[in-house]
Design a protein around this nucleic acid. Sequence first.
DNA 1: CTGGATCCACAATGATACTG
DNA 2: CAGTATCATTGTGGATCCAG
Lengths: 118, 118
Amino acid sequence: MEYDVYVQTCPTRLVLDRLADKWAVLVLGKLDGQPVRFNQLKREIDGISQKVLSQILKKLERDGLVSRSVFATVPVTVEYAITPLGRTLTSTVAALTRWAEDNIEAVLAAQQKYDRSA
Amino acid sequence: MEYDVYVQTCPTRLVLDRLADKWAVLVLGKLDGQPVRFNQLKREIDGISQKVLSQILKKLERDGLVSRSVFATVPVTVEYAITPLGRTLTSTVAALTRWAEDNIEAVLAAQQKYDRSA
DNA sequence: CTGGATCCACAATGATACTG
DNA sequence: CAGTATCATTGTGGATCCAG
C-alpha cells in the first residue's frame, strides 16, 4: 500500500492534521520524559485552556500516542504518559520546537524587512 | 536572550503557529528542491484552495522562508522557491511527513482499538 | 483534581466572481 | 496565469459553571 500526504483522501492527512497543531506539539514535548498530570500540563503549557487541553489529550490518546492512567487517590490522580509509538515522534517534534527557538530572530528580522518594504 | 515556546508571550510561539499548519508543511515539502509556480502548487497539493494557498505563501514569504519571483512573460509567471532560511527547516518538515506515512497504520489501528472499547 | 457541558465571539474556509 | 474581494458558513477556542 502506498501512502502520500499530497493526496487529499490519504489517511496520512489525518496524522498531519493532528501533528500540525501547535498544542499537540507542545503537549508531546512536555510528556517526553516522565508522565505528567493534567493540571501540571495546564500550568506548564502557558496559555492553553482546560477545554482545549482535554480535547487534545483525548485525541492523542485515541491516536495511540499518549496513555492515560487513573489512580484512585483522593482526589483522583490522572497521569498522562507518552507511548512507545508516541516516542517515535518526539525527536521530530523536539526538532520543531528547537528550530523555532533557534531561528526566531531570523524570522522576526525577515518579517520586519517585509513589512517595511510593503 | 532566552526563548521558550512554553511561555505564551514568547515570539517562538509565532513560529510554531506557522509551522504547526498542515498546509505550510505541505507547501514547504513541495518547494524543497526546485522553484514551483502557483498553479502547479495548487494542482500538486490536493485539496488546497486558491485562497488558502495564496495566504500561506504570503505568510511564508513574510517569514523569510519562501521567496517570490515574478517573470514578465505573457501571461505572467510567478515562481516560489525556498530560501536558505527555509531550507534549514525542510529536513524537519520532511521528517514529519515521513513519520505520517510510516506510522499511519499504527495510528489507525490505535484509533479502532480506542473506538471499540468506547 | 479532573474534567464534561454550555454559551458565545471570533477566526478560518469554501464558493464564487472579478481583475491585471 | 496569478491572484484579490466578498459573502455565507462553519468551526474553534475562551470563559464559565458544574460534577464525580
